Simulated assay, not measured.
Amino acid sequence: MRNSARFPHTLDGLKETLVIWSAELRRAVRSGRAVVLLGLYSMFSALVLLVVGWIAGQVREAVNKQLETAGANADASAQVAEEMRKGMLGFLTSNDTAMMEALAQVPLEVLLVFKITLFFLPAYVALMGFDQISGEVGPRSMRYLTVRARRSSVLLGKFLSQATLLLGLVLIIDLAIFIYARIANPDFGFGHVVLNLLKFWLAAIVFSLSYVSLTTLCSSLFRSPAVSLVFNFIALFVFWLMDTIGQASGETGALRFLKYLSPSHYAGDLLHPKLAEFGASGAAYAGFATLFLLGAYAVLRARDL
């Protein structure tokens, strides 16, 4: 009897969440912010792609000139270029053999852009959703929502709307990058384009959801959206600093444990072809996302709206 009594409440909560998610997503898509965010993300990605492509082209040109001066033939030039590519790929994958084999067909420009944009993606997430809760709590319009729906439903609905919008924007940018890579690299076949597009997008999904949760937590802590944004950037800096100090401490340093407390530490295996390594990173990000959402719910539940 108790389970049957609770089940309708669960369905009601799910319906409330879906209604809020749908309404918030429509509002976000119609607003000018979605267009601005898409333009900002696309311009940044395009700039990184052009700079990386230009540097790679300059390096190849310089190497080819040196080989021509030394009298090397075309085969030798191709061999040197391949060795350089393997060296760069090994650097980006921490010399993981399985990852190097899995990413062998991906142009280095794509992998470099992915790594760089992944570093700045948390800041982009903060700009996108810093006012998702505080924007309602500050003017006290949140009370009208919580009269009609549970606070947990409001929280999850807003979180899911921000996550859905972000994943759509990331997919658009990733698709554009891979189309460019396909045009610039004829050897990058269609099958590899589709497979790696899905792989890179899935990695971005797993990575970004924990930071969307962090933004939800920061937004729920304060009534002022501006304060929420500043605190969010401080939290991102602290996490980055913890990872940096932990990495610098090595495997035996006293502060090495700090890196395990930072979400960014687990990004290295998001493109790993082995399910165990990818699953471990995914589980870590799921844990961070759950922790941040529970914290946001605790704050929202205790807050006087």
Rank of each mutant, 00 (worst) to 15 (best):
R2C: 04
F7S: 07
P8H: 07
T10C: 12
L11V: 14
D12G: 08
L14S: 10
T17C: 05
V29I: 15
S31W: 04
G32C: 03
R33K: 10
A34G: 10
A34V: 10
V35F: 12
V36D: 08
G39Y: 09
L40T: 04
S42V: 07
S42D: 03
F44E: 07
F44Q: 08
S45C: 10
S45K: 09
A46Q: 08
L47I: 04
V48Q: 10
V52N: 03
G53P: 03
Q58N: 07
Q58F: 10
R60G: 05
R60I: 00
R60D: 02
A62G: 05
A62S: 12
T69P: 00
A70L: 13
A70V: 07
A70T: 03
A72I: 01
D75M: 10
D75S: 06
A76Q: 15
S77D: 13
A78N: 15
K86A: 07
G87H: 06
G87K: 05
M88F: 05
L92P: 09
T97V: 08
E101Y: 06
L103C: 00
P107C: 00
P107N: 04
L108I: 01
E109G: 01
V110A: 01
L111D: 02
V113Y: 01
F114I: 04
K115Y: 09
I116K: 07
T117N: 12
F120I: 03
Y124Q: 02
V125E: 00
S134F: 09
P139R: 13
T146E: 09
T146S: 07
T146K: 05
A149Y: 09
R150M: 08
G157H: 15
K158Q: 08
S161H: 10
S161A: 14
L166E: 06
L167R: 10
L169I: 06
L171Q: 10
A176K: 05
F178P: 02
I179P: 01
Y180R: 14
R182Y: 12
I183L: 12
A184I: 08
H192L: 02
N196F: 02
L197H: 01
L198M: 09
W201G: 08
F207M: 11
L214I: 00
L214T: 00
T216S: 11
T216D: 04
L217G: 06
C218M: 15
S220W: 06
F222A: 11
R223F: 06
R223W: 06
S224T: 08
P225T: 03
V227T: 12
V230C: 06
I234W: 04
T244E: 11
I245P: 06
Q247S: 06
T252S: 15
A254C: 02
L255Y: 14
R256F: 14
L258C: 04
G268T: 13
G268K: 15
G268H: 15
H272G: 03
K274Q: 13
L275W: 13
S281D: 13
A283R: 14
A289C: 09
A289L: 11
F292E: 12
L294V: 14
A296K: 11
A296H: 09
A296M: 06
A298L: 04
L300R: 03
L300C: 05
R301L: 08
A302D: 14
A302T: 01
